[in-house]
Design a binder for these strands. Structure first.
Length: 314
DNA sequence: AATGGCTTCAACCGCTCATGT
DNA sequence: GACATGAGCGGTTGAAGCCAT
């Protein structure tokens, strides 16, 4: 207790949920300047928050490499295994799950435990039954559907609305390659406020090395496709594309269209048409391969929203 | 339609650890 | 070594949405 809170007791410090405007300010500041000293961030970013709050907000929510959405069976197993080994060392556990935060894991564990306590009959659901889990589906398994009937109502409309191959491809990468503004999306009126807040302003941090943001990029799964025609733009959003802010609906529409066409025809979509969705047609010059189906946004909720908005196109 | 209980998870709190002076 | 400061961690809280009644 020795430490009475220094920063958060200051006057005029706002608390509670972050508004989209605050998120925007923080994102803009961090992506432009980075963060050296968190205690200086709020003042420099024009936020009435304490540095600690900013740090937490960034780490647990806003940073671009964060991965959201329901835990996969594989992640679940890993959490269980790691927890058995190290206990409540959430940060340690999180370090083994790229894109997951200690807070998220902790929350998940606590709710899971609650469920287990309440419902002691253990039909081997989450407790590591590899043979029962769908190894190819990142979100949807009967395990989740049975145990968590609400999971489609939040940011995970995905499993029910997309067919497995697309889903697999879409989520084959654990590392999002870009960010974009999603402020205008409305999620079917389901948990809208919360998800809306979640999918606030993102854009590619100008001048930042993407490696800094996506340390796991090497894990991206590649698909071998014919080389792109000369008029196709190499790279993803982090190279060519970037109207700083565009709506998610626009983004989604274009991206899905291009992705679908590419899937169906195995052909490249003309750059003029695809300039808004290079994420789905990502040419890796180093490997000479096409990395298609890159995760579209920093959060799986964005993708869930995207797919749920356009279920017919899949 | 109203409402009250339940669940989820973002955010906060208190503390320890690491680092600099 | 003592102290100050900032970062990080784990526990807890409470707002918001969901759902059953």
């Amino acid at each position: 207790m020795g430490g009475h809170h220094t920063c958060c007791n200051q006057q005029k410090v706002k608390r509670g949920l972050w508004s989209p405007e605050e998120d925007e300010k923080l994102i803009r500041f961090i992506t432009t300047h980075g963060y050296g000293c968190w205690s200086e961030v709020p003042e420099k970013a024009g936020l009435q928050r304490c540095g600690k709050s900013c740090r937490l907000r960034w780490i647990n929510y806003l940073r671009p490499d964060i991965r959201r959405g329901r835990f996969t069976p594989e992640e679940e197993k890993l959490i269980i295994t790691l927890h058995a080994a190290v206990g409540n060392r959430w940060a340690h556990i999180a370090s083994h799950l790229p894109g997951r935060t200690d807070n998220e894991i902790k929350n998940y564990w606590n709710s899971w435990i609650k469920k287990k306590i309440r419902k002691p009959s253990p039909p081997s659901t989450t407790t590591a039954t590899p043979s029962n889990t769908n190894q190819h589906s990142l979100f949807g398994t009967s395990t989740y559907a049975e145990n968590q009937p609400n999971f489609l109502s939040h940011d995970h409309h995905l499993a029910a609305t997309s067919n497995p191959p697309v889903q697999d491809t879409l989520f084959s990468s654990p590392s999002p390659l870009f960010m974009f503004e999603t402020g205008s999306v409305v999620l079917d009126g389901i948990d809208g406020d919360r998800d809306h807040r979640r999918t606030e302003l993102f854009h590619e941090p100008a001048g930042l090395n993407s490696g800094t943001w996506h340390p796991n990029q090497q894990e991206v799964q590649a698909q071998v496709l014919p080389p792109p025609p000369s008029n196709f733009t190499t790279g993803g959003m982090n190279t060519n594309y970037m109207p700083p802010f565009c709506s998610m609906n626009e983004e989604v529409e274009l991206a899905l269209e291009c992705f679908q066409r590419q899937q169906q025809s195995n052909e490249w979509v003309d750059h003029q048409e695809s300039q808004h969705c290079p994420s789905f047609l990502f040419w890796d010059q180093g490997e000479g391969q096409v990395l298609s189906g890159q995760e579209m946004a920093p959060t799986s909720s964005n993708i869930g929203a995207m797919l749920s908005s356009y279920p017919s196109s899949l």
